[in-house]
Write a protein that binds this DNA or RNA. Structure first.
Lengths: 245, 245
DNA sequence: CGACACTTTGAAGACGATCAACGCCGGTGG
DNA sequence: CCACCGGCGTTGATCGTCTTCAAAGTGTCG
């Protein structure tokens, strides 16, 4: 993944794809650049919603906490992705997740109402609709996988997606997050995740610490898609939709 | 729930809320009224997407099938809801679910591209964004519940939502769908659903065949929200968002 | 009446969570 | 430099929950 400077990032935001440079500039005038240190929260579940964010660098964990203190990772957002879109359009007044900086993060911050204004531009509205419906579909599929697939299958599926979404080399890449975080993101315990990785070694995936090799794609497909309801096969499908982002 | 005739239904569609009668008429000119007999499919997973639909009467089951023939219910859509929105905005060319008529169904059918045109009206775009982000949030919460809550808790939660979303009386209402269907919608086996209902009798819910009484709301809350990560409490939260629809 | 779908109940089995222990590493402080 | 600590990851053993399989009851419809 090539490093990008600020202007590269801004001019490649999916949110602004297809709109003129002037319009982009006009919209960006309302944005402020902000930095969040690794380990800090951008906002907490329950806070009043003031802003809409676009991530320029770093990754942000979206999470909720249960009354007994267990952290549920809803999503991990990275460069180019937005934060708060759904909550604002929802007409929620309060955040329903917390946002936590996994690394040092820089982001563009806009007043919440800016988003609805921006959505009155039909091109931007379509951009938002596209990304929202893609996200929605992803959540739907993952939810379905929780009931149809084994933990190992879901982990295998997720590894493939990480590989494609982050533009990594399937012949050798390093997990971009800690194993505990990935486990949490997939809704399972770290122990379970660890055991799942072990099992995947018998199905075309090599694992050495954080280094992954998707060695035998056919074997992986065969293992993962045993119960998959997406026609063709689920991981390829998800890879494709991921590439459309 | 009062019976409504066709023009009542059309003039109360959430999709068209806030737009003028003339505009509504103009948009509806491209729609055709269609009937689907109970037990027929509107379309199948994998079919090319031709249309966008708005349900006028009846309910439609959205589902996928796994290679071993098991049916996964993605959603159950009823009057006023749309079908195919996300898939079209996704820029998918093929349906990724099947749509099955649970009863005799009447719906408005529009060419798929009509939706993107309609979305160029900022008011309609916002309406779609709102409903899509609400749906997305619901799926997210349910997905989280699959990992944090027991089957009985999820069933209790769902019963409350059925009650509110269908405008039923919590002191006595009848399940609007078969138990097997609800089980499938919740991603569990009919046997498990049946046992969950039995367990709920100890927690403020009375069940007699298909007749439900939400007898002791406080006991229900206490039981369901033990591990809920939505501040306040999850079912109330969901009730409120449901009422905003 | 018989076929069939739906539901319930029981018993067995599989799977993931939980609890506990240990190894490993990076950082801190003596 | 070494000792200590805390976070992370792995492994083993046990437990609880949901699925699966089997059987039987109920209802509807031909």
């Amino acid at each position: 993944m090539p490093l990008m400077n600020y202007s590269d990032i801004v001019s490649n935001l999916p949110l602004f794809s297809g709109i003129s440079e002037e319009e982009k500039k006009r919209l960006l005038k309302n944005g402020k650049l902000r930095h969040i240190a690794s380990g800090d929260y951008l906002f907490h579940n329950g806070d009043v919603i003031h802003h809409f964010y676009i991530i320029c660098t770093g990754s942000v964990q979206l999470l909720r906490e249960t009354p007994d203190g267990k952290k549920i990772t809803t999503d991990i957002s990275t460069r180019g992705r937005t934060i708060g879109k759904a909550e604002i359009l929802n007409t929620s007044t309060h955040h329903n997740v917390s946002a936590f900086a996994l690394e040092d993060v820089t982001l563009l911050e806009f007043p919440a109402k800016w988003l609805k204004d921006a959505a009155s531009n039909p091109v931007i509205a379509l951009n938002i609709l596209t990304s929202l419906s893609q996200y929605s579909h992803m959540v739907e599929v993952e939810s379905e996988q929780k009931t149809t697939m084994s933990v190992s299958q879901r982990v295998g599926c997720f590894l493939q997606r990480i590989c494609v979404m982050h533009g990594l080399d399937k012949n050798s890449f390093v997990l971009p997050y800690s194993k505990s975080l990935i486990a949490s993101r997939l809704g399972m315990e770290p122990e379970t995740f660890s055991r799942a990785l072990t099992k995947l070694k018998e199905h075309g995936i090599s694992i050495d610490d954080k280094k992954i090799v998707l060695r035998d794609m056919q074997a992986i497909e065969d293992f993962i898609c045993e119960h998959c309801s997406m026609l063709g096969n689920c991981s390829t499908h998800q890879l494709l939709t991921a590439e459309n982002e």
